[in-house]
């Protein structure tokens, strides 16, 4: 069979990248790929098949007790930074107690506040997501700032600030659903 070219050529500058700083209490599955200046806090769970590559945009921050499920991709554009909670600049900031579920894509510049839930296969790119937001599945969030505590319905495409400003608040039923999905992955943490 003729197969020509590689889908993802190796980055020639990889050897010069900073080493990730990962708290010893954090679990990183052996099949996950974490490169560059990535700072990961306490009790974080990085599931199989996750790719966190700070090879273009960097650094990345992932706060305590956050959960990154199977096949999540975290990457950043070379240009564009967000202010983290420590006032420093990051390509990707992910706060504490955040759940990034299966196949989600967080592409910097991006800020995801504490206690957010990102549903299956959703994308956050060039955006700021306030604390406690519930993003359901198959959502695209791009070029917007979303206030704290908002609910983004499955399949939404939020790409203008007007849309972002009109989002409804997350309800307790949404938070219950989110914790149900998070629970699905908790067994792996043990």
């Amino acid at each position: 069979m003729a197969v020509r070219g590689l889908a993802a050529p190796p980055t020639p500058w990889s050897k010069e990248l900073a080493t990730p700083q990962i708290d010893p209490s954090t679990y990183v599955h052996a099949s996950s790929d974490i490169i560059g200046d990535v700072r990961i806090g306490k009790n974080v769970h990085i599931a199989p098949g996750v790719s966190i590559r700070a090879d273009e945009g960097s650094p990345f921050f992932i706060g305590d007790n956050s959960n990154v499920q199977d096949a999540v991709v975290i990457h950043g554009l070379e240009k564009g930074r967000v202010a983290g909670d420590d006032k420093s600049l990051y390509s990707v900031w992910i706060g504490n107690n955040v759940s990034i579920t299966h196949m989600a894509l967080i592409h910097g510049p991006a800020y995801v506040g504490d206690d957010c839930f990102i549903g299956f296969r959703s994308t956050v790119f060039n955006a700021r997501l306030g604390k406690g937001c519930v993003v359901m599945m198959h959502v695209l969030i791009q070029d917007v700032e979303i206030p704290d505590g908002k609910y983004i319905a499955a399949g939404s495409i939020i790409t203008t600030q007007q849309q972002a400003d009109r989002l409804p608040d997350a309800l307790s039923i949404d938070l219950q659903f989110a914790s149900h999905i998070i629970g699905i992955n908790d067994a792996l943490r043990a």
């Binding site: 069979m1 003729a2 197969v3 020509r4 070219g5 590689l6 889908a7």
Partner: peptide, 16 residues
């Protein structure tokens, strides 16, 4: 590929 698969030499197949 598996089974009886015929690929012309000038055809191209991407990764995966």
């Amino acid at each position: 590929s598996g089974g009886d698969v015929t690929l012309h030499p000038s055809a191209v197949v991407a990764a995966g």
